[in-house]
Each structure stands twice: as structure tokens, then as C-alpha cells.
């Protein structure tokens, strides 16, 4: 053990010279960078990445329909739940360990920690994007596409991962009790199934994340008509709604956050309608 540097008693009130440089970067950015690295190494993310890599290897040459799906809708469907749970566990860490009050005694606020948890979701997204780009390059080089997926469509397959992570953070802030994340996921899937059937009858439902037209995954039958650009805006608006929702809990002034959330909801409704063919 080394000794503590000597200080005069006047230092106590005057404030000693700063021991280390502070705030060269905003706290949420630096904390988010560290949390992103941790989230990327999260066991759930590693399992999911191994799974998707295995599927890419096994399904990569199973025809144009499969090749198209692998680089568009598969990341969202296969990795989304993993990112949701990993982000939720990461964001609820302080509450699970019972040290929220302790951390509240520090200059960084709970809002800073929430922003950091949200930024951390970018970590797994970057990793999956890299994986998809490799798969895309391999598929393009082996000439497996009948129709090449547009960039916006590849993006619309990746963005739901951002949404899944942000939703996980929001659930951690609003429903911090054990098992709630699983319950939310079950509720989401159940609601989706229920609404999908009803909306299909009304002619309004389209498999928005799965643009290839056929239900038979082995057959290429063209793509569903619709606006991919509006779809990307729609997904981004949903992401922003989740981000605003997470902050609503501890915002000092709730009205601006509510107004922002309302604006994002309006964008989601408009873009959700505009994406239809």
C-alpha cells in the first residue's frame, strides 16, 4: 500500500487541485463507450452472434430467397430478442445490485446512466452490421441474388436491433422487477400475433421486415411493394419513442420529454401509413 499524499487542512474547504482531468468528454459518451464494449461481450450477444453466424454458413447457399432474407430481415428476427434482454440486464444492473442510491451520490445523474445504456446498444449493432456486410459481400460475390437488396432494406433489417436494445433499456427503467422483461417480450409477441391476423383481414398488414413476397422460404417470388425509405423512418421513430420513454421516468421536467415522445409517435404514425404500398 502506498501512502496518501499530504495535504493541508485548508485544502478541505478550498478544494484541492484536481487529481485527474475531468469532463474532457461528456459522461454519457464515455460511459456509453465502456458499456457498449461490455454489452458486445455479453454472453447473450455472443450466443446470438454464434447462432446467426452458424445460420449464415448453413443457409448461405440455399437459394435466392434465403440469401436475400439472411442479409435483410434475419438480424432483427434472430438477434432482436437477445439484444433486448442483454440491454435490459445491462441497464438494470444497478437496481439488481441495489446500489442506485450509492451511485446517486456521484456527479453523474441517473439520466446520464440511462443515456449511456442507450448509447451502448450501438455496440452490438455495429458488430451485427459488420457480420451482415460480410455476408452481403460473400453473397454478392457468389452471385446468389435474383434481386439485390437495396441499402435501405438492409438498414431496415438492422435498425430493429437498435429498437430492441432501446426498448430493453426503457423496460429496465419503468419495470425494474425480476421477470418483467420476459413478460414484456411474451406480451409483444402475443400482441403481434393477435394484431397480425386481424390486420391481415383488413388488408393493412404487410410483413414489413420481410420484403420477399412468398411465404415459401425456398421460392423467390419478387418483393412486396412499399416504401423502404418510409419504413426506415418508421423504425427510427419507434426507436426514438423508446429512447424518450426511458427518460420520462427521471426527467426533472417531464413536459419537454412528453412533447418529444408525442412528436416521435406522430412521425411513427405518418411513416407507418406512408410505408404502405
Amino acid at each position: 500500500m502506498s501512502s496518501v499524499p499530504a495535504r493541508t487542512s485548508d485544502d478541505v474547504l478550498a478544494g484541492a487541485p484536481e487529481a485527474v482531468a475531468r469532463r474532457t468528454t461528456p459522461v454519457p459518451v464515455e460511459l456509453g463507450r465502456c458499456e457498449a464494449a461490455r454489452l458486445t461481450r455479453h454472453p447473450l450477444i455472443l450466443v446470438a452472434l454464434a447462432y446467426i453466424a452458424l445460420v449464415m454458413v448453413l443457409e448461405g447457399d440455399s437459394g435466392p430467397r434465403s440469401a436475400y432474407t439472411l442479409v435483410t430481415d434475419m438480424p432483427a428476427f434472430m438477434l432482436g430478442p437477445f439484444v433486448f434482454f442483454a440491454a435490459n440486464l445491462s441497464a438494470s444492473r444497478e437496481r439488481r445490485h441495489g446500489n442506485e442510491e450509492w451511485l446517486d451520490s456521484m456527479p453523474a445523474t441517473s439520466a446520464d446512466r440511462t443515456r449511456a445504456a442507450q448509447l451502448a446498444v450501438v455496440g452490438p449493432l455495429v458488430l451485427v452490421t459488420a457480420l451482415v456486410l460480410v455476408a452481403l459481400a460473400v453473397t454478392l460475390s457468389t452471385d446468389q441474388f435474383i434481386s439485390k437488396p437495396p441499402a435501405l432494406e438492409v438498414l431496415s433489417g438492422l435498425l430493429p436491433l437498435l429498437g430492441a436494445g432501446l426498448l430493453g433499456v426503457m423496460v429496465a427503467r419503468w419495470l425494474p422487477w425480476p421477470g418483467m422483461a420476459a413478460l414484456v417480450m411474451v406480451a409483444l409477441v402475443a400482441t403481434h400475433i393477435a394484431l397480425a391476423d386481424r390486420l391481415r383481414l383488413l388488408g393493412a398488414f404487410v410483413e414489413w421486415a420481410a420484403w420477399p413476397a412468398s411465404d415459401d422460404s425456398s421460392v423467390w417470388a419478387g418483393v412486396i411493394p412499399g416504401s423502404r425509405g418510409w419504413h426506415v423512418i418508421y423504425v427510427l421513430a419507434l426507436c426514438a419513442m423508446a429512447a424518450a420513454g426511458a427518460h420520462l421516468g427521471h426527467a426533472r421536467r417531464k413536459l419537454p420529454v412528453l412533447a418529444l415522445g408525442g412528436a416521435f409517435t406522430a412521425v411513427a404514425v405518418v411513416a407507418g401509413w406512408a410505408q404502405l404500398a
Binding site: A19, A21, R22, V29, E30, M106
Partner: peptide, 18 residues
């Protein structure tokens, strides 16, 4: 290190030294 960030020590090298 995590606590150091919450104490606003965001310069990575200086923080790690601390």
C-alpha cells in the same frame, strides 16, 4: 473505473492512472 467515469473522469488515460 466505472465509478471514476460517474465521477466525471472522462479522460481515459488520466482516469486509468487514477
Amino acid at each position: 473505473d466505472y465509478v471514476a467515469i460517474l465521477k466525471e473522469m472522462t479522460d481515459r488515460h488520466a482516469r486509468h492512472d487514477e
